[in-house]
Amino acid sequence: MLSYILRRIVATLPVMAIVALFVFSLLYIAPGDPAVVIAGDQASPEDVERIRQSLGLDRPFLVQFGGWVWRILHGDLGTSIFTNLPVSAMIGQRLGPTLSLMIVTLLLTIVVAVPLGVVAAWKAGSLIDRVIMGFAVFGFSLPVFVVGYILAYIFALELEWLPVQGYTPLTQGFWPWLENLILPAIALGCVYIALVARITRAAMLEVLQQDYIRTARAKGLGQGGILFIHALKNAAVPIVTVIGIGIALLIGGAVVTESVFAIPGLGRLTIDAILRRDYPVIQGIVLLFSFVYVLVNLMIDVIYTLVDPRIRY
């Protein structure tokens, strides 16, 4: 198992290299000369030239790329053109809120969506099934910001149960931290819950038709044992896959959600960086998200082997 994980980590290196090359090329693909942008509207051509030289933008592409990779490997993601702060420090500051939001959303999704899907499959065709699936369609069709504002209006402004917006770090207590994340997590999780519930239902329906479920019934097993011991684990592979893919969805959704709820996370940083054409920051964030995604994929593959003894590498 350990050697398998090691081999998979090695196998991700080329992927990361291609991602890095792509991220670095952003600077050249995107329209506009970064030196001109940084220098601002009133700069003279000499100023622009000076900035270009100081950033090394005048050197050949491969030399620039080599130097960039070398610095990243040493933990240096460069310096923000706009704030002059190190990119790694800027990302570090914003990582906590985004990570918190994603983890809470992920847990909420699994806890809500999987049981909903199981129940829908068990009672397929019944009223409960239709209500759950109706909710899923609803959750699917509403954009994150609409759900976000509606939730904020009802639960924060009218009922005053939860804060309207903002973020409190975990170091200041568990409840204050969670309190601020509940509404954003529900808003962000809506689509995700709908997706996972649907997939869970479909996977369970397929498994519940299998012969070994009939065997389990023939043995006299109770409904709970059949659904959760025999069926759900067999349905796990597609469910785990979709939960994993959904993490990419979360990254995109986090950008919008953080704007709605004024959470000082990576999403906000990304928008700001794009608007300012702060290339080092954009590169750093994209690289980080790619890395997270590759890591999540690796974890999914490892979970496959734990769930299904027939999968061997």
Partner: peptide, 24 residues
């Protein structure tokens, strides 16, 4: 019913490999 199934009365099926849970 459950006291009956698998205890007083039991059943075996065609295609035994499909009738067993593949991951247990």
């Amino acid at each position: 019913l459950r006291q009956l199934q698998g205890a007083a009365m039991s059943m075996i099926f065609q295609n035994p490999r499909a009738a067993l849970n593949p991951i247990r």
